[in-house]
C-alpha cells in the first residue's frame, strides 16, 4: 500500500554571485519536505545560501541518442571562435 515518495532534483547556489548548480537528488513527500531534506543532505557544511528543488518528472532532458543532430553541427562552425580570424601579431587589445 505504501507509495514511493517522488524524486526531486536539488540545485544549490554556493554563494551570491554564482549560479545554482545541480547537487543531486532526493525523495520527499512534497516540495516543502524536499526543501527541508535538501538543507540537511546537501548543506551540512555551509555549501549553500539558496536552494531550488524541482520534481524530477518536471525536467525534460535531451536524449544521448540525439547527440549527433543536437550538438555535432556546432563542431564545424569554427568561425564562431575568435581564433578563426587572422590578424597581425603587432595589433594589440583585440
Amino acid at each position: 500500500m505504501s507509495k514511493d515518495w517522488p524524486l526531486f532534483e536539488v540545485f544549490i547556489r554556493s554563494k551570491n554571485g554564482l549560479e545554482h548548480r545541480h547537487m543531486g537528488s532526493l525523495h520527499a513527500s512534497d516540495p516543502e519536505m524536499a526543501m527541508e531534506n535538501a538543507r540537511d543532505v546537501y548543506t551540512r557544511r555551509q555549501e549553500g545560501v539558496s536552494i531550488w528543488v524541482v520534481a524530477s518528472t518536471d525536467i525534460t532532458a535531451s536524449n544521448p541518442k540525439e547527440y549527433g543532430e543536437l550538438f555535432e553541427p556546432a563542431a564545424d562552425k569554427i568561425y564562431r571562435h575568435p581564433t578563426f580570424y587572422d590578424l597581425p601579431d603587432e595589433l594589440k587589445h583585440i
Binding site: M1, S2, K3, S29, D30
Partner: peptide
C-alpha cells in the same frame, strides 16, 4: 516508520 511515510504522502497530496 511505514505509517509516517504514508501519512506524509497523504498530507502532500492534500496540499496539492
Amino acid at each position: 516508520g511505514a505509517w509516517v511515510r504514508d501519512a506524509a504522502v497523504a498530507y502532500g497530496e492534500k496540499k496539492i
